[in-house]
Amino acid sequence: MDLLHDFSPGLFFMQTIILLILIFLMRKFAWKPILNSLNDREEGIQGALDAAENAKKELQNLQADNERIIKEARAERDSMLKEARVLKESMITEAKDEAQQEANKIVAQAQETIEGEKKAAIAELKQQVAAISIEIAEKVVRKELDNKENQMDLVDSMLGDVTLN
């Protein structure tokens, strides 16, 4: 089995030509589609990696936007609560002021009513006292004026009171 003894230059030449034709055919029909499919696969993988990176960046942007929106919503909620508290306090203060004014008005009206009723009662009391005084005076004067001597004493005492005043 000696290879050099079995060597045939014609056979070698033919095998070389067949090998070159086979390489040419493989290159023309097999290598290009294989390389193209490998390139397509590599481009697809690279595209998927780029898409994943873009999706990751977009997710980060969305998370940042969500955080910003949540902060804005919290700030708006806080401002609305603060505004509601201020409005509540102003309404309570306004209601208290109105109630105080109404109470003062009612008290003033009650005092005016009491004063009016007091004046009316005093006037009525004066009238009654005057009427009673006149009745008493009439009775006293009748009794006093029954005789002449008492009449003169009464006139003299009245004249004395007038000069003293």
Rank of each mutant, 00 (worst) to 15 (best):
M152E: 15
L87W: 12
L4M: 14
N54G: 03
F12T: 05
E138V: 01
L81G: 07
A131F: 03
E117S: 02
L81S: 10
L20V: 11
N66A: 14
S37E: 15
D156F: 13
A103T: 10
T16V: 07
P9L: 04
Q128V: 11
A95T: 04
A55M: 03
D78W: 07
L49R: 13
D146Y: 11
E117D: 09
E124A: 15
N150M: 01
I114E: 14
R41M: 05
L20I: 13
A84I: 01
S37P: 04
E43D: 06
A137R: 08
K126N: 13
K88F: 15
V155A: 06
I92G: 00
V141F: 01
I106V: 10
I69Q: 02
Q101S: 11
Q63H: 02
R85N: 08
A130W: 07
N39T: 13
A131H: 03
L87D: 08
I18M: 02
K57P: 02
K105D: 05
L35M: 06
M1K: 04
K82W: 07
R68N: 14
D2L: 08
V129P: 00
K96T: 12
L19K: 04
I34A: 07
L154K: 05
E135N: 11
R85W: 01
L62D: 15
K82E: 03
L59F: 11
L154H: 06
G160C: 08
M14G: 11
A120E: 00
N54E: 09
F13L: 02
E53M: 07
V141E: 07
Q63K: 12
F7H: 11
H5M: 01
I34N: 05
T113D: 06
L22W: 05
I132M: 12
K88H: 10
T16W: 05
E83P: 00
E89I: 08
E67K: 10
I69N: 07
N39F: 06
E43Y: 00
G10E: 12
S133M: 00
V155M: 03
L4R: 15
A75V: 10
G10H: 07
A99L: 11
D65Q: 12
L3T: 02
A48E: 14
N104C: 09
A64W: 01
E72S: 02
G47N: 03
